[in-house]
Design a binder for these strands. Structure first.
Length: 491
RNA sequence: GGCCCGAUGGUCAAGUGGUCAAGACGGGGGCCUCUCACGCCCCAAUCGGGGGUUCGACUCCCCCUCGGGUCACCA
């Protein structure tokens, strides 16, 4: 590559705006930690009115997973994390897939060799695990090979890699937006491989080159990269490039010791949605896991998150994912929905349990909205609609309502003709009928409501009260169930 | 093990030298009430340990402990 090529690459780099990127490798699914990183990255860009880009890091040919990229697109889109540049929408510094950029890395690596900050290494691939323990990047014989020798072995077709030439003395300090200055002794830094034997760059190298070539101003990533950051700095300095701001995020944990992981069966974004969690609630919860806006407010829409976001307030220590708190937040979102929106979201779940189309899903949804933590909890609350359970008469015994089987039979007997004679069958009418009866018989409302609700539902706990359930069941079915109750109680 | 980073209730966390150490989830109790839930009220629960610095430390420094990360031709 000639000098012109490098100049052209540099000339494309946008300046004067905040540019962040989410750079996943398509090796699996969107776990919660990934989602959070993407969210923070997006927030930094949006907060500053900058650009958010998506770059696919697929330099590991062995770990590609079919369909993984689609999961990434879908998740980002669902969550409202729109990107300004990326493989699908293009942009000024494309391509945005690393394997499509394969020809740009080698020239930069060669330039580093020329600059004396990298070298060709012809050593055999080290066996895995061999150099664990007290390994301290022992003198690589290739480090000081002279140019002629290198050229000879290259010409002979020997396999090679290019390694970064780390200084043997001194220290390297880099600045992180949330951890502050971090210093590491150069001796502890490895002469990491930049270009692999297959000609593709390693993650570390591709990352630096791409971030520079794409004009990334804020590098947001997991804290697992904290200890390799000094090597990145050395690379930027060797090239004479401006060092971006680093924002390292601590991991999301499943418990005190382990990160959230697919292996442990921890839920991904998609899993959570399948479990009945709302996207808005997931995004909101994840944002607050490891970041705090400072005040007491906890409910934030995606837009409000972008507005309030201050990366300085990202937590330094790992946070444990608490499904219970997510569930609470999800319930808050459900309660805040309009009845229409909730009915629409709940209907498929309602119909899993209630197949009888005579029972109005909208009415059922109205009973459910204040009692639903997550949508998947819905079906089990509704099983009594389609078929009346074969319950025990003991269910009629309820201390607080002062009800027992005897009283239940008496109440239901007297109630049946009144219900049958009702001019209309709606909640108000039913309520009037029942409270009227209670007043007339000089008993508590509860003593009338309890047996009727048990008769109608056949279970102790139901969403909604007696009148609401009877209204949905309809007059005919209600009377049928009262008759069944009287039969049970007659024994 | 070397190196790097971190440490406020069970969990998420506010707090940046002087506070009776916010708030939320969860837990406990109560009120409301046609069950359950919602809502409302109240309660319990935290600065890992030890040294300094200071008139005064959760806040600053050191050590210990504990936790996390990293030490791949994976990202």
């Amino acid at each position: 590559m000639n000098e012109t090529w490098f100049e052209e690459m540099e000339a494309r780099i946008p300046t004067g705006e905040v540019r962040t990127r989410f750079a996943p490798s398509p090796t699996g699914y969107m776990h919660v930690g990934n989602l959070r990183t993407a969210l923070y990255t997006w927030c930094i860009a949006r907060h500053a009115g900058g650009k958010f880009l998506l770059r696919i890091e697929d330099t590991d040919q062995g770990r590609l997973v079919e369909g993984a990229v689609d999961v990434i697109y879908k998740t980002l889109a669902d969550c409202g994390l729109d990107h300004d540049e990326g493989p699908d929408v293009g942009g000024p510094v494309g391509p945005y897939v690393q394997t499509e950029r394969r020809d740009t890395y080698l020239p930069y690596a060669r330039r580093l060799v020329e600059l004396g900050h990298a070298y060709y290494c012809f050593c055999e691939k080290s066996a895995s695990g061999e150099d664990s323990g007290d390994f301290t990047h022992a003198d690589d014989p290739c480090r000081e090979l002279d140019a002629a020798e290198v050229q000879r072995r290259l010409d002979a077709g020997e396999p090679w890699v290019i390694r970064q030439k780390i200084p043997r003395t001194g220290t390297t300090t880099f600045h992180d937006e949330i951890y502050g200055d971090v210093t590491a002794p150069n001796v502890d830094l490895d002469d990491q491989v930049l270009i692999k034997r297959d000609g593709l760059p390693t993650y570390n190298f591709a990352n630096v080159v791409d971030d520079h070539l794409m004009g990334i101003t804020h590098v947001v990533r997991g804290s697992e990269y904290l200890s390799s950051a000094p090597k990145y700095n050395l690379l930027y300095e060797a090239f004479g490039w401006e060092i971006p701001r680093y924002v390292h995020c601590s991991p999301v944990m499943r418990d005190e010791h382990n990160k959230m992981s697919k292996r442990h069966g921890d839920p991904s974004y998609e899993d959570l949605v399948a479990q009945g969690y709302l996207t808005e609630a997931i995004v909101n919860y994840v944002a607050l896991l490891g970041w705090s806006p400072g005040g007491e407010r906890e409910i934030y829409s995606i837009g409000e998150l972008a507005e309030a976001f201050d990366m300085k307030r990202i937590s330094k220590s790992p946070a444990i994912f608490d499904i219970g708190k997510l569930t609470w937040l999800n319930a808050e979102y459900i309660k805040a929905m309009t009845p229409e929106a909730f009915a629409a979201a709940a209907e498929p779940w309602i119909r899993r349990a209630v197949t009888n189309s005579a029972y109005d899903a909208g009415r059922i949804a109205a009973l459910l909205q204040q009692r639903t933590d997550k949508l998947s909890d819905i079906p089990e609350k509704l099983d009594f609609f389609d078929t009346l359970p074969d319950y025990s008469p003991e269910l009629y015994v309820h201390k607080k309502s002062k009800c027992d089987e005897e009283k239940a039979r008496d109440i239901l007997r007297k109630l049946r003709p009144r219900l049958e004679a009702l001019p209309r069958w709606d909640n108000e009418t039913l309520l009037g009928c029942l409270t009227g009866a209670a007043a007339e018989w000089e008993v508590k409302n509860a003593l009338v409501m309890w047996p009727l609700r048990i008769a109608a539902a056949g279970r102790a706990v139901t969403p909604g009260g007696a009148t609401e359930i009877c209204e949905i069941l309809g007059r005919e079915e209600t009377l049928r169930r009262v008759d069944i109750a009287l039969e049970k109680l007659a024994k």
